[in-house]
Write a protein that binds this DNA or RNA. Sequence first.
DNA 1: GTCTATATAAAGATAGAC
DNA 2: GTCTATCTTTATATAGAC
Lengths: 220, 220
Amino acid sequence: MAVGNPTKSKSSLNASRQCRDPEVTRSQILNAAEEEFAREGFRAARTEAIAARTGVTKAKIYYYIESKEGLYRTVLERCSTELLPAIEQLNLDQLPPEQALEQFLRQFLTHTSSNPNIPPIMFLEAIQNKGKYYRDTANLLIKLVEILERGIAAGSFRPLDPRHTAVNILGTCVFYFGALENIKHLWKGKRLLSKEMLEQHTQEALNFILAGLRWQPTSP
Amino acid sequence: MAVGNPTKSKSSLNASRQCRDPEVTRSQILNAAEEEFAREGFRAARTEAIAARTGVTKAKIYYYIESKEGLYRTVLERCSTELLPAIEQLNLDQLPPEQALEQFLRQFLTHTSSNPNIPPIMFLEAIQNKGKYYRDTANLLIKLVEILERGIAAGSFRPLDPRHTAVNILGTCVFYFGALENIKHLWKGKRLLSKEMLEQHTQEALNFILAGLRWQPTSP
DNA sequence: GTCTATATAAAGATAGAC
DNA sequence: GTCTATCTTTATATAGAC
């Protein structure tokens, strides 16, 4: 196994075929696999389809990978390498809770907007495989719960259940990406992953979440 | 095809085997299929597994159904028969927007709590099949957008984008059910579908959403 | 390293006895 | 109506030529 250099370009479809650089080929396979797994999940994904997306034969795929399962694990790993470290670097513990939460959400939404395959992959992994191959989402949630607990204790946020609220917040952030095909009918003709729409989602989600945590006019 | 009487008991697993009533058998098959499709989606679901869940042979399944695809369509139809009519009956147009929204959400959350297979089925259908077999979720969203538009126009809610907000609201309601296996680690030892936890989710989601729409202390 | 051809296994669906 | 046995298709994975 040991596929891939995640830093290279990610637009995979119809990527320059017949390439001789093995590193590029590995990367192309990984990108195509990510697309396929994001649309089908592990079990329903077909190596044949991954080959077609990459623009090569099935046999060539198997020259580069160990197995479909190994490829899946590699894709999942690559999905989780960037976000958590980036969030750790923000040193959120040292910011006031409101700012910490906003920074967390901005980082998360920006990262997800740049990697819109991640939410469907995680949904499929959770639903189909019950997290057999991946459990890291929990770490994000725990970070979020900590921020909420701190903010509630400090009186910055209303008194709410931090765990349910963390789940509801994450749901607000990622549902958009998981339900693209269900919600697209609300914006006929618009591409939901365009820069414009992603910025709108980020801003609306952020406003909605922060408002949901503030003390209310009627009960201060 | 033409499977099922949706009104009968729904607990399928290990349901009384060797039953001779064809209506009961149909119902058992439908329930088992719903479970299997909710965990795997259409493509990855196996008729073999549905047979095993029902406690019968594959051949018996095929005596009662036309095909795997037909069974899937029937399951999806059954999922959508109850909620929308129930919401129509509430006559939400005639209530003030805040009350209309609260009624809508209570009905939705109650129905989802009683039918926790529906969110994963809809997630899988949207992600894997791009809504090929099902498009009704859009109707719910449209109803929600209408309520929000009315409330914004009346000044009951903050000025927000009604479509993004409808999506964010729905996300808050259903993410819990779609990501069960990702979030369960926050509540070690607790059953996330217990009556207690479902009531907590309903209440927390409701509070969170309504708070997110209200005018804020700093900008009234 | 890449291809064609193929072995092997799994899954949808059916035949035919009872 | 139900079962065992089987057909057919599809999919993972590999052999072997080039």
